[in-house]
Structures are given as structure tokens and as C-alpha cells.
């Protein structure tokens, strides 16, 4: 034990410790922001967030009658359909790019494009959705058009995450499978996909939590402002949680703007946390079963 480190810099140890504290402060600041946000929202939503809030439709005039029913069901519909569209297309694309496509220039172009598309702001997809689905294909601003638009938003993320997951499967697995005479299809279906599943699911769920929080593309396609019903079919008008919250914050009445909106935010946050917890759980649960 010497007071001076061997490299001769007297403050090296102190600097090293300070650096550790600084990094810890960075890590805690992000948690602090979350705690601050949640506590603030809980304070505003206190007394407003109850069972009645979950089961009632929106109200235009009475804040104590307002609720998230239409928005909650709308969001669930959207997410279910978005999953249905984005998972097969996304995982299919990833399998093609990872397992089938030759390393050609063409593949490079597609790959670069997907990476760039992942960074395109969602409002751009909203305008595309308005032109393509709502007007072009005459779908109207129903649940189907909304889900297809959100699919556009999350598809690049799903593809990239699935590619990562497939790439993480050791190549020895592929080789062993082929060595035993399996076809490419058998290798993909029986070996690669199950092994990559936890990674794919995590990616998909994180992408879906993004879709759940998107308001901009739904505003762009013209999703409804005020609805007193839940969608029955895929062409029905709908509203979603982020939209509903946005509309409440636009209300002239303070009770709506602060308290009802905060209660809506809590519902959205709880849904997001549930989705992310599912991702963690799936990774843990399925991850355990894979032994190489």
C-alpha cells in the first residue's frame, strides 16, 4: 500500500473515483427524471384515476365523467393488428436478408435503406399512410389504416432486431443442421427461429411500445377526436391513448387539461411498463431454455 500510485500521478485514484461517481450520477439522473415524471403525474391524477375512468367514454363537458375506454380499446386493437402485420413481414425480411440473400450490392442497398427507414420521423409515415391507405386504398381513417401506418413505423425496427437475433445464433448450429441433411427451411424453422425467438420477441415488444406511444402518425391519417364507442370492426373509427391525452391537454378546462390528462398518461405508462416487463420476462424465460 503506497499513497502514491506507481504511475506517479497523485490524483489518478481520486480521478478514477470521481469518474465512477460522475457515471453513477448520469445513471441516476435518468431514473430521477422518470421518478419525477411519475410522481408529478400521480399527484395530478390522484383522485381522478379510478375504475370509472377506465370504463367510461370521453366526456366533452364533465371532467368527472370522462374516461379512457374508447382510447384504451382503440390502442389495444391497434397494437394487436400492428403485431399481426409487422411480425410476419419483419421476421420474414430478416430471415431473407440473413439466411438467403447473397452478399451482393443489392442486399447492401436494401440493408442501408432499412437502417435509414428506422430513423425516419413517424409523422412522415403518417402522411404516407394518409395518402396510401386512407385515400389511395379508400380505407378511411379506421383501425386498419391506423395499424398499417403504425406497421410502417415499426417495421424497420422489427427487421433490424430480428436480424440481430438471428446473427447471434452461432453458425455451428446452422452447420450442424445442414450436416445432418436438413434443408434450409428445416434449419430456419426448427433451429434458427426457436433459438432467436427471445431476441426477436424483445425487439418486437420494444417496437410495439413505440407504436403504442405514437400520436403524430394517427393525427396525420385523421383518426377521430371524439368517439363514444369502441371499434367493432377493422374499418371503424377509433381513437388511441396518446391522441386522447393530446385532446385533453387541448381542452380549455383545467380539470381536463391537468387532471384527466394526467390520469390518461398514467394508464398509458402502465401499459408501456407492462409491455416492457413482458419483454424482460420473455427474454428470461425463453433464454433459459437454450443450451448450446
Amino acid at each position: 500500500m503506497s499513497s502514491l500510485p506507481r504511475n506517479g500521478r497523485p490524483y489518478a485514484k481520486l480521478a478514477s473515483q470521481l469518474f465512477a461517481y460522475a457515471c453513477a450520477a448520469c445513471a441516476f439522473s435518468s431514473v430521477a427524471i422518470l421518478v419525477l415524471l411519475l410522481s408529478q403525474m400521480l399527484r395530478f391524477a390522484w383522485g381522478w384515476l379510478d375504475w370509472q375512468f377506465i370504463t367510461s367514454f370521453d366526456s366533452q363537458l364533465s371532467p368527472d365523467k370522462a374516461g379512457v375506454r374508447a382510447a384504451l380499446v382503440g390502442s389495444i386493437y391497434l397494437i394487436a393488428l400492428t403485431t399481426l402485420f409487422s411480425v410476419p413481414i419483419g421476421v420474414g425480411s430478416a430471415i431473407y436478408l440473413e439466411e438467403y440473400a447473397q452478399r451482393s450490392r443489392w442486399r447492401g442497398i436494401v440493408q442501408t435503406n432499412i437502417a435509414n427507414l428506422a430513423g425516419v420521423p413517424s409523422i412522415v409515415y403518417g402522411i404516407l399512410g394518409l395518402g396510401l391507405f386512407v385515400r389511395g386504398m379508400q380505407m378511411g381513417a379506421g383501425v386498419l389504416a391506423g395499424a398499417l401506418t403504425l406497421t410502417l413505423v415499426v417495421l424497420p425496427i422489427v427487421i433490424l432486431a430480428s436480424q440481430e437475433a438471428l446473427r447471434a445464433v452461432p453458425s455451428t448450429i446452422r452447420q450442424a443442421s445442414y450436416a445432418l441433411g436438413a434443408t434450409r427451411w428445416q434449419t430456419v424453422w426448427h433451429q434458427l427461429l426457436p433459438a432467436a425467438l427471445p431476441g426477436i420477441m424483445t425487439g418486437v415488444i420494444l417496437a410495439l411500445s413505440r407504436a403504442l406511444g405514437e400520436a403524430a402518425p394517427l393525427v396525420a391519417i385523421g383518426a377521430a377526436g371524439f368517439v363514444m364507442f369502441t371499434p367493432r370492426g377493422i374499418n371503424d373509427s377509433f381513437t388511441a391513448l396518446p391522441l386522447q391525452i393530446y385532446n385533453w391537454t387541448e381542452n380549455a378546462n383545467d380539470d381536463f387539461r391537468i387532471h384527466v390528462a394526467a390520469a390518461g398518461i398514467i394508464v398509458l405508462m402502465v401499459m408501456l411498463i407492462c409491455l416492457n416487463a413482458t419483454a424482460v420476462f420473455l427474454r428470461y424465460r425463453f433464454g433459459k431454455r437454450i443450451h448450446w
Binding site: 424453422w189 425467438l197 443450451h291
Partner: peptide
Amino acid sequence: MHFSVLLPKVRPLR
């Protein structure tokens, strides 16, 4: 033919 005996113990998609 059951390769899964030899290869990783994971279930195929249901």
C-alpha cells in the same frame, strides 16, 4: 427424423 435430440433443446413455434 428428429434432429432436435441432438441439437438445442428448444421448442419449435407452436
